[in-house]
Design a binder for these strands. Structure first.
Length: 216
DNA sequence: TGCCAGGCCGGGT
DNA sequence: ACCCGGCATGGC
């Protein structure tokens, strides 16, 4: 099979049906970073409530958030679940951000994408998906984000093994797609929308799914 | 009502 | 190299 053509065709089909997704609704790169941690294994609706609380308390800035006690931060992000671990993880991330660049996104421009990725992964609580989400949606680096939906959908289409490693699944896309931030942004967003709007329905709407024609 | 959501870590084998 | 329990709320 020609993986490059297949991935391009699947993307075109999703775009045709969905249009553009305008994804990761956030008012700033910093809000993206925070949301990336808060959404770990958590419904986005709950994350929105937590972010609302942070804005309401006027602490959605790196300086103020790092000044909060962990239990104060935890109380604010309570609706997002796992609030104690997430408060720790946010503080870990913020301490790194301060040490690495004094809370400046642009100061990290000198790092290569893989260097920056390794830095993020060194933070306790930042795993591969969270790191790639931050790279793509906050730093606007071309790092393809894969998640449980990506694995499920591409496995169902017999394109990858069900237990493929995160890194290998990421390479499955990055080895053939151009290193393009807008493309990766939209590709990941489209996969999530297909999963939610077709696959995860109580009665899956496979007949009308934009990816249907790519099933063997 | 119970099940699950845009994971990750630490400890065990 | 895997496997598993813990972490926790709100929506359906």
């Amino acid at each position: 099979m020609n993986r490059e053509k297949l991935l391009n065709d699947m993307f075109a089909a999703m775009q045709h049906t969905l249009g553009s997704s305008n994804w990761w609704p956030a008012e700033s790169p910093f809000e993206v970073m925070v949301g990336a941690v808060l959404t770990q294994n958590t419904n986005w609706k709950n994350v929105e409530k937590a972010i609302h609380n942070l804005k309401n308390a006027q602490v959605l800035t790196p300086e103020k958030m790092l000044c909060l006690q962990q239990d104060e931060l935890a109380a604010l992000i309570r609706p997002a679940g796992y609030f104690n671990v997430k408060a720790k993880r946010l503080h870990n991330l913020l301490r790194w951000f301060h040490n690495a660049s004094e809370f400046s996104f642009s100061k990290l421009d000198t790092l290569s994408m893989e260097e920056l990725r390794a830095e993020l992964l060194s933070v306790n609580g930042i795993g591969q998906e969270t790191a790639d989400s931050i790279l793509l949606y906050a730093f606007e680096r071309p790092s393809f984000v894969v998640d449980a939906y990506t694995r499920r959908i591409f496995n169902r289409h017999s394109l990858v093994e069900e237990d493929i490693y995160y890194e290998d699944l990421r390479d499955f896309f990055m080895d053939v797609l151009p290193q393009d931030v807008a493309l990766y942004n939209e590709y990941h967003a489209s996969i999530v929308r297909v999963a939610k709007d077709w696959c995860l329905k109580k009665a899956p709407q496979c007949e009308s799914c934009p990816l249907k024609i790519f099933l063997e």
